[in-house]
Nucleic acid binder design. Sequence first.
RNA 1: CGGGAUUUAGCUCAGCUUGGUAGAGCGCUUCGUUCGGGACGAAGAGGUCGCACGUUCGAAUCGUGUAAUCCCGACCA
Length: 585
Amino acid sequence: MKQSRMLIPTLRKAPSDAEALSHKMMVRAGYIYQVSAGLWAYLPLAQRVIDKIENLIRQEVNKAGGVETTMPGLLPADPWKKTRRFYTYGDNLFRLKDRRKRDMLLGPTHEETYTQIIRDTVKSYKKLPLLLYQIQDKFRDEDRPRYGLLRTKEFIMYDGYSFTIDRAGLDKEYDAQAKAYRAIFDKMGLNYKVIYADSGTIGGTGSQEFSAPAPIGEDTIVYTDGGYAANLEKATSKFTGKQQVAEEQELTKKATPGAHSVDEAAESLGLDASQIVKSMLYMASKDGEDKPEPVMVLMRGNDEVNETKVANEVDADDLRLASDDEIAKLLNGAHAGSLGPVGVGENVTILADNYVKVLVNMAMGANEDGYHYVNANIDRDFRVDKFGDFRNVQEGEIAPDGMPIKFTNGIEIGHIFKLGTLYSQILGAQVLNDQGRATDVVMGCYGIGVSRLLSAVVEQNADENGLVWPTSIAPFDIHVIPVNVKKDEQMSLATSITEELEKAGYDVLIDDRKERAGVKFADSDLIGIPLRVTVGKKASDGIVELKLRRTGETIEVKKEEIVNTVGILLKQAANDEQSKQSSNE
RNA sequence: CGGGAUUUAGCUCAGCUUGGUAGAGCGCUUCGUUCGGGACGAAGAGGUCGCACGUUCGAAUCGUGUAAUCCCGACCA
């Protein structure tokens, strides 16, 4: 491929509004062009990377029994109304009407559509299992698109859906997808972590999230060197609290003027935050029920409430902090900042973290602005309905695997999920089983953020000169650079080398532009093709220079040896990329 | 949803305080020299200063509104 026929608008400087490394680099290197906030054009180089990633996915998913399909991006709202997601999905769903005023939407995911197809076309368990997938644009009206391709309003996604007659079948499909995902990400040379999650609240019985550590990642990954990995929402640590031993003192109300936070109260009372109990008032509600139930959560002042754990405990679909009005109404006109469990009525469920259980003579808000209680004790002064783990783990604590916990940011690149029969029940996707009885089809759903993968890979593979693509998904394998295109011996050698390498099956880009060497080298580094072939002064002797982008390693070879040497170098580079990854997981 | 910032040439920015209808560097075009790590010289092209309304004889500049873009935060009582 001639570079003069490509559109590669490289820039000396990154646009001033780019923040993330991958965002800046991909714009500078001429891969992507921003059309609008959260909407990106993939220029020729990005398109080639995307094609390679997609083909890698196809390869591995097909191996796992997947078959490719394509759904419309524009969808009728009716099935989404049946599953209620038309109403519950929130503002991220693009809703629109067609000319007959029929409600439509732009698909953010396709559970309904695939379930509908299976419902109408598969009537017998003998036709199962099936794993249907597509690689296609998805639409989500993100509140805040950011970081280049990381969070956008339209993005490319692999989404697969498995249909089986029973749970055992689902487990097989799920495991096959997990295996395929690992193969895909391994081949891409990505560093990633697999996060296992227990059953979610909505009909699922298991999920794994694949997350690539990177500074701009929006997940907090809790992990250990022993292999433990979890979301902050799900992470647990060993309880290390010790029962405090002290004589119970008299409950006393103290003035703490102006103290609204734990730190302010701690200062005012001369106590450590860990001896202060903060009390958070939440409103918990379930789907389809209007009246939320108040839940008070007690926590050491230096801990953070984990709302997922609280929601699970009270079996709530929605959990939110109580509004000022609600607090005032339930707690005698008190305001946030001075809440506490003393004297709280039976209508409020009181949960307390395990670490509160071991405290004696604790301080807490008095439900009266400007006052805190000190020397409060459980049972004697206030009621606790249930103790449990309701806090976020902290770095350095001991994980369930016995190793110290570390935190890192991660980019969610893939997710697999055991859906169960939720959608098939609602949409009526049933087949006859071997007993001749109608049975709900058991589903799993699987997703990979394809366009987001570019960001993840670039975040992990770039240096100050530009991108450094892994060989498996680089837009080209080899960048041939005739240093001076006006010198016939250089140009003709470069051309013949390009043809030879292309014949050998490589993707080759030849820089046939009438640019000076410095410009070509700088652009080449920026673009990040794994191997560069420089055809320069020694062209007349039939000698060229090979240079690896990642290591900078350079060797001179005779033209007769190029194809052979290139093969060795690229294979070695691919091995290095994959071993780098496996040592990391 | 809350807060902050920005918007002038393809990119990075200056000019605005003290109104007089626009500049630099890079990039782009042409010619010449140069030619293995972002060359040099000469001559050019390119902008209704985000948009609207207002103030004024006159607005990139002052006022009001609006839009777009980016960043931060989203309740820890």
